[in-house]
Nucleic acid binder design. Structure first.
Length: 265
DNA sequence: ATGGTAGATTGTCTA
């Protein structure tokens, strides 16, 4: 099974690029974040026409929004209110071999926003969101549960997940407040971050480049915000993980690129 | 020096 996760930053604007990616990658299952539209205007028929006849949508006007699109049947579609908000950031479905969770963790602010939970409510929300998910996963499953969690986590946890570890330690996405919480979430079910499995820790790996850079490729000031995690029962099924950087250079690109996970399951 | 761009929406929030 080939799984693709992508923060598409508007599914209506970027449907042509999604169609191009589908033709190129041929994923079995697609997890989207930041679809930015209510379900009734999601371009469902176009995706049905490409073979994605099983769909689980949870969108809203303007912000956030998620979709799972599949060529294979699934059961048990769920949506989760997190931090008391129905804000379309966590959905899941069940396949025969695993349960799949699509996550969109709050950004917590951007640009010059400060990573201070006391003064920045968006940052406080982000930390609470990760804490709540950590507790929820740990009480809902065990490390023996076959699970996949993918999506835009908005946290770059490792030194080489950012272009400069030192310069980003006080920048939202790479602060110790965030990375220690994400590590606690990973450890609570002994998740395998497939980045660790497939890419050497000393090798830079990015999935996002800011729109605000004059030349994203030249400066290459990226961050790895998009993740593909699996639990231990799926380790033998891991075949490959690839961050497809080339799509950042597409016409009208998303600021995130798709990540592909191949499983023998 | 506190920038810069993008998307939804149409003044302003979010990223």
């Amino acid at each position: 099974m080939r799984l693709l996760t992508w923060n598409i930053n508007s599914v209506r604007l970027r449907l042509p690029l999604l169609q191009q990616i589908i033709r190129d990658v041929q994923p079995d299952v697609i997890c989207l974040q930041e679809t930015k539209c209510p379900d009734e205007v999601f371009p469902l028929m176009e995706l049905h026409g490409l073979g994605y006849t099983y769909t689980h949508l949870w969108g809203q006007k303007s912000y956030n929004g998620q979709a799972i699109l599949s060529k294979h049947p699934f059961t048990d579609p769920k949506t989760y209110a997190r931090c008391g908000q129905e804000d379309c950031r966590h959905i899941s479905v069940r396949f025969p071999a695993f349960e799949l969770h699509n996550l969109y963790i709050p950004s917590g602010g951007s640009g010059g926003d400060l990573p201070d939970p006391e003064t920045n409510p968006k940052f406080r929300h982000k930390l609470s969101f990760v804490e709540e998910m950590t507790a929820w996963f740990a009480q809902t499953y065990t490390p023996e549960s076959p699970l996949i969690a993918v999506g835009d986590f908005n946290i770059a946890p490792y030194e080489h997940d950012v272009w400069s570890h030192k310069q980003l330690l006080k920048v939202i996405s790479h602060t110790p407040d965030e990375t220690t919480r994400l590590e606690a979430m990973r450890a609570s079910l002994d998740w395998i971050d497939t980045r660790t499995h497939f890419i050497p820790a000393t090798e830079k790996a990015y999935s996002w480049w800011s729109y605000r850079s004059a030349d994203w490729k030249k400066n290459n000031r990226g961050r790895r915000l998009d993740h593909t995690w699996v639990t231990e029962p799926l380790r033998p099924a891991l075949k490959s993980m690839e961050i497809q950087t080339k799509w950042r250079g597409a016409d009208k690109p998303s600021d995130h690129v798709p990540v592909i996970l191949d499983l023998s399951a």
